[in-house]
């Protein structure tokens, strides 16, 4: 069941443009090697994907999230720099 749920989430995140950032693996306590291997691979992959685009959105406030990915959509719309940008 866990696999299905995780699969579900993986697909949903993918649809939202956050694909590849969730991974599930079964590792028993005897499989130290595998653990190292998986963590390494996954770390490598995440590094490759770049920083979490959500960073900056997690603020519980009305930030204008400068530089964060979402700001870009609006920014592309108005290539001029914004006053609020300067202030943050």
């Amino acid at each position: 069941m866990t696999i299905k749920r995780i699969n579900f989430l993986q697909e949903l995140l993918e649809f939202m443009g956050l694909g590849g950032r969730l991974h599930l693996e079964w590792i028993s306590s005897a499989e130290a090697q595998k653990f190292v291997q998986v963590v390494k691979e996954f770390t490598e992959k995440i590094r490759h994907l770049g920083p979490n685009p959500l960073r900056g959105f997690t603020l519980n406030n009305l930030t204008l999230d400068v530089g964060a990915a979402a700001g870009t959509a609006a920014k592309t719309a108005c290539p001029e720099p914004k006053e609020t940008v300067a202030q943050n």
């Binding site: 930030t63 204008l64 001029e80």
Partner: peptide, 15 residues
């Protein structure tokens, strides 16, 4: 004077 939700969608937003 504040950065409001609508500022995010503005072509120019000023405080």
């Amino acid at each position: 004077p504040r950065n409001i939700q609508l500022s995010r969608f503005a072509d120019v937003a000023v405080n």
